[in-house]
Amino acid sequence: MTEAASPLLLIVDDSRTSRMLIRGIVSNLRPGWRCVDAASGDEALAMVEAEAPDFITLDVNMPGMSGLEAAGRLRLKHPEIAIALCTANVQDSVRQSAERAGLHFIPKPISEKSIADMIAFFEGHGVAHA
């Protein structure tokens, strides 16, 4: 990200509905952020290579690569990107996997509060935003 550019959030979810909901709340809470989205882990990895975002939200259960696998690959190449898992799979085992990987966990259904918490996590990750 250049110094002048506004923060970029990549929303990865196979559900268009979920992408719209996340984007809608983020746009309300942080009007200056740019949001782009991807419908799969593979698409997300390609987009990150084209322009690395500051933050990523990842669904877990998607066609092809899972969100956890995508997070692992992203961590290897882009450890500077803050990542949140946003999933309906709220099993303890998934929460623990997220915690071990240093990912913020957002249970679905999302709410304004859970997205606000996610933004606080992102903003505390070392990138300063106006």
């Binding site: 559900s15 509905t17 259960n61 309906a88 709220v90 099993q91 085992s93 679905k108 259904p109």
Partner: peptide, 27 residues
């Protein structure tokens, strides 16, 4: 699909956590 995903996962996750097991869910 997303409504079903959220609701069914909520229920199965409780089952998994109480029984101390883990599930993989299909789409």
């Amino acid at each position: 699909c997303e409504v079903g995903n959220i609701i069914l996962n909520a229920c199965i996750s409780a089952l998994a956590d109480l029984l101390g097991i883990a599930f993989e869910g299909s789409l």
